[in-house]
């Protein structure tokens, strides 16, 4: 059992007063905060099972111990409801997977933020938005859960700007970054099952940039749509260029996904095509990056040969998100990190 959480006295539970009391101690995200009274935190803990004070993760760089109670405090601050707690507990667990490299994610000068993708039954029961405007604003579950995860990183992990987070410019995705998968309109079934997680509910964390829009209203077939996706992936400023093991999350809108599926393309076909089409001249990449982490076979390419922007099609992850319209998005990664998908509730 971890040490009990400390408390402080405030004169009011007004959200502005809590924000100011926290800010005086270097806490908070700058926005008004819901007062984490013991009563509210106890109510939040009804949303998950297990010992509230059992350490479930240690988060770098602070080596902060994340108990369910500490998670619940930050969930209250962010405006979550108890039904969001299982998502947060699973997300914290996912972030501690070694391949995520949370120490690097939190400490880098890059604007990386963990994108939290909610899959399956809990996306519905928790009220998460997978449809129109899924990346926000407007939905309480997406907004509050993403904000709570950031508050956990700020407070428990110690990833405050300047103290634990060296991000040069920061980024809007560092306020809240949570979306649900549109399972109902995915022609290929759920993403979590496609990576071997068959639980009814799951979460994925992908530590990457904010989404880059891909607009295609003209094309009926998959190739021209995906050529635009490939163009958005092939960006010389992305960390994926010098780090070939980095992943791309391609968030296809239902209409783009339907156009691909109608032509008989599977999720794997889409990834393979993007791997083939998202390429840059090897010499240009070599000139741009003295410091590279490429696969050995990539270093062997001649300067005039095209280089895929990631070393394997499996690094291109396809998820269906959004509502009516023809806008998809690409989310490059920080580079030295891998996504993690874990079940909720296990």
């Amino acid at each position: 059992m971890a040490d009990p959480l400390e408390t402080l006295e405030v004169t009011s539970d007004d959200p502005d007063a809590v924000r100011d009391a926290y800010a005086a101690r270097g806490w908070g995200d700058g926005l008004p905060l819901v007062a984490p009274t013991p009563q509210r935190v106890d109510a939040m803990l009804t949303g998950c099972e297990g010992d509230p004070d059992e350490p479930i993760a240690t988060l770098p760089p602070r080596s902060g111990v994340a108990t369910r109670r500490a998670i619940a405090v930050n969930a209250v601050l962010a405006g979550c409801r108890p039904e969001h707690m299982p998502v947060l507990v699973a997300a914290v667990w996912a972030l501690t997977r070694p391949e995520v490299n949370l120490r690097g994610v939190n400490a880098t000068t890059h604007p990386v933020a963990p994108l939290l993708i909610v899959h399956g039954e809990i996306a519905r029961s928790g009220g998460y938005n997978a449809g129109l405007g899924a990346f926000g604003p407007g939905n309480a579950a997406n907004a509050a859960t993403g904000r709570a995860l950031r508050l956990i990183l700020l407070h428990v992990a110690g990833a405050g700007p300047g103290s634990g987070d060296a991000s040069t410019q920061g980024g809007p995705a560092k306020y809240t970054y949570c979306v649900a998968e549109n399972l109902g309109e995915s022609p290929w079934g759920g993403y979590a099952a496609s990576v071997g997680v068959t639980a009814p509910s799951a979460v994925t964390v992908h530590c990457g940039e904010a989404p880059h829009n891909v607009h295609d209203m003209e094309s009926a077939g998959p190739a021209p749509i995906l050529d635009k996706v490939a163009s958005a992936m092939a960006s010389l400023g992305s960390n994926n260029m010098p780090v070939s093991s980095g992943e791309f999350f391609v968030m296809l809108c239902p209409e783009h996904a339907a156009a691909c599926a109608a032509a008989g393309w599977t999720r794997s076909h889409v990834a393979s095509y993007l791997h083939e089409r998202a390429r840059m001249r090897t010499g240009d990449l070599r000139d741009a990056f003295a410091l590279r982490a490429w696969a050995p076979w990539q270093e062997a390419l001649d300067n005039d040969e095209p280089m895929p922007v990631t070393e394997h099609p499996g690094n291109i992850r396809i998820v269906v998100v959004g509502g009516p319209g023809k806008h998809s998005s690409v989310i490059p990664s920080w580079g030295m990190t891998r996504s993690a998908t874990v079940p909720v509730g296990d």
Partner: peptide
Amino acid sequence: MKIYAPEGAVGPPAA
């Protein structure tokens, strides 16, 4: 009014 601090304990350092 009493409210919780948000940080939690610090775990043992790895080194």
